[in-house]
Design a protein around this nucleic acid. Structure first.
Length: 428
RNA sequence: GCCAGGUUGCCCGAGUGGCCAAAGGGAGCUGACUGUAAAUCAGCCGCGAAAGCUUCGGAGGUUCAAAUCCUUCACCUGGCACCA
């Protein structure tokens, strides 16, 4: 597990670029060196699935675990009902049913990224609804609320911005207290003395540190990691690559997930390898060098895509997706592919079915496979020279496949532009 | 409860009776160049082959004509009050 020269976890996080803010680093370093430390990170069910950006703190927990510490993964069943205030404005609350359903799904995802065993570093999963739910308002206001100063809460960046803009409900304003109380609760239950999270969580985490100090007269640590951005510094998932990249294979197919990372820029790929993988410095340096010398091989992108697909979807999926990508992508002679290879590849990409008897045109094919959103869009694609059937460009909107075009008598490989592929099964 | 402001296409945002399928920006898509990169340039970006149709929170109305006016409902925001 640990390298021959066991590097301090904080040093590793630092060279990986995973350090944003922290409380007293020297004290944290000391405590981490003293033996297994218990740390936690929370995830609110604000969507049906985690997305790639969530992997940063989640893998962060895992990194600490590998370094000999005990991670607690917190599912935000309670905090998810309230909503962390954001600058864009008041959230519309989701229904309790929705939150509960999302919570279950997300919890299932969370559990896959840390190791459970009986050792002192075995992971723990908790749900803050377990202690927040039973608490009465009066208890909460007396025991927790009393320790918070409205004055300092008002000076928070997000709150100030919101007050200048559209204001903020008391509900969201209270979020800080809930998360702070979580930290206190975990400190009491599990001796948790470190909370990590994305840098947007900084003030929430500090709230807990403060609360623990006031109530328990004990120090606790806060440590945040940068929010992932793409090469232009945009927040991950928000606008990069057309929407979020979800962990749930039903929302983002493993093939799409793989292709997303395969397509990032050189700069982003080398950066992401540090943030999202466990490769050590030597391996990373070798990949960097290779990428610089022979950029067309896209070594960094390939490694990134493979490692992340394996991490999220497993070895088997990665093999299938890689095979599909190789089989379908670009210049290979599709006619030489085995039928089984082709059909396996079709499992990974969007597909459609048509009957030759219906005499479908290229436009019909693009629409039926979902490669184009509408007939107009499909027509546009053809007009723009972006439509391919079996790697041959099709420029006539009225083009129809004939029996001689079929691969193995029953398949077509459709492509829009350079990177969007779909399979067509042709029936009689 | 009252008063005021707001709700526009994936996002931000202009638009206060016709010239609006709706400016602009971002995101996205295609092409050129390449390395399934970046940068840059060009085109596209509601549906429809077209006629035309559907869109500006929901419903209804005024008008030859509504994103724009009126009514009403919902939600958001700000302010005031009430519950003493």
């Amino acid at each position: 597990m640990m390298g021959p020269v066991s590097e301090h976890i904080l040093d590793e996080l630092s060279w990986r670029g995973l350090t944003a803010q922290s409380t007293d680093l020297d004290a944290l370093r000391r405590d981490l060196s003293a033996g297994p430390l218990t740390l936690y990170c929370g995830f609110d069910p604000t969507a049906p699935s985690l997305h790639a950006g969530n992997l940063i703190p989640l893998l962060g927990l895992h990194r600490f675990q590998r370094a000999g510490h005990r991670p607690i993964v917190l599912a935000g069943g309670a905090t998810g009902m309230i909503g962390d205030p954001r600058e864009q404005g008041e959230r519309v609350m989701n229904s309790l049913d929705t939150i509960a359903e999302w919570g279950v799904r997300i919890r299932g995802q969370l559990e896959r990224f840390v190791d459970f065993d009986d050792s002192p570093t075995g992971a723990v999963v908790v749900n803050n609804l377990d202690w927040t739910g039973p608490t009465t308002v009066l208890e909460f206001l007396r025991d927790v609320g009393k320790h918070f100063s409205i004055n300092s809460m008002l000076s928070r960046e997000t709150v100030k911005k919101r007050l200048d803009a559209d204001g903020m409900s008391f509900t969201e304003f209270s979020y800080l207290l809930l998360q702070s109380n979580d930290y206190l609760e975990l400190f009491r239950r599990h001796g948790c003395t470190l909370q990590i999270g994305g840098s947007d969580q900084w003030s929430n985490i500090l709230g807990g540190v403060d609360l623990i100090r006031r109530v328990e007269q004990k120090p606790a640590h806060a440590f945040t990691m940068p929010l992932v951005t793409d090469a232009e510094g945009r927040k991950f998932g928000k606008s990069t690559g057309g929407g979020r990249v979800w962990l749930d294979p039903a929302m983002t197919s493993p093939y799409s997930w793989f292709q997303y990372f395969l397509n990032v820029s050189d700069e982003t790929a080398t950066n992401y390898l540090r943030l999202f993988t466990f490769l050590d410095r030597e391996e990373l340096a070798a990949i960097d060098a290779d990428t610089a010398e022979r950029p067309h091989l896209r070594t960094a992108q390939r490694r990134l895509a493979e490692l992340l697909t394996t991490l999220v979807h497993g070895d088997k999926e990665t093999q299938q997706v890689t095979a599909a990508s190789q089989a379908l992508f670009g210049r290979g002679e599709l006619r030489e592919l085995e039928l089984s290879t082709l059909l396996a590849a079709f499992q990974e990409i969007p597909t459609g079915q048509v009957r030759l008897a219906d005499a479908p045109t290229i436009v019909d094919l693009l629409v039926s496979t979902g490669l184009a959103d509408s007939r107009g869009a499909a027509r546009r694609t053809v007009k723009e020279g972006g439509a391919y059937v079996n790697n041959a460009k099709v420029t006539d909107e009225e083009w129809k496949p004939g029996r001689e075009d079929l691969l193995h008598g029953r398949c077509l490989v459709l492509r829009r532009g350079k990177r969007h592929t779909a399979g067509v099964e042709v029936l009689d």
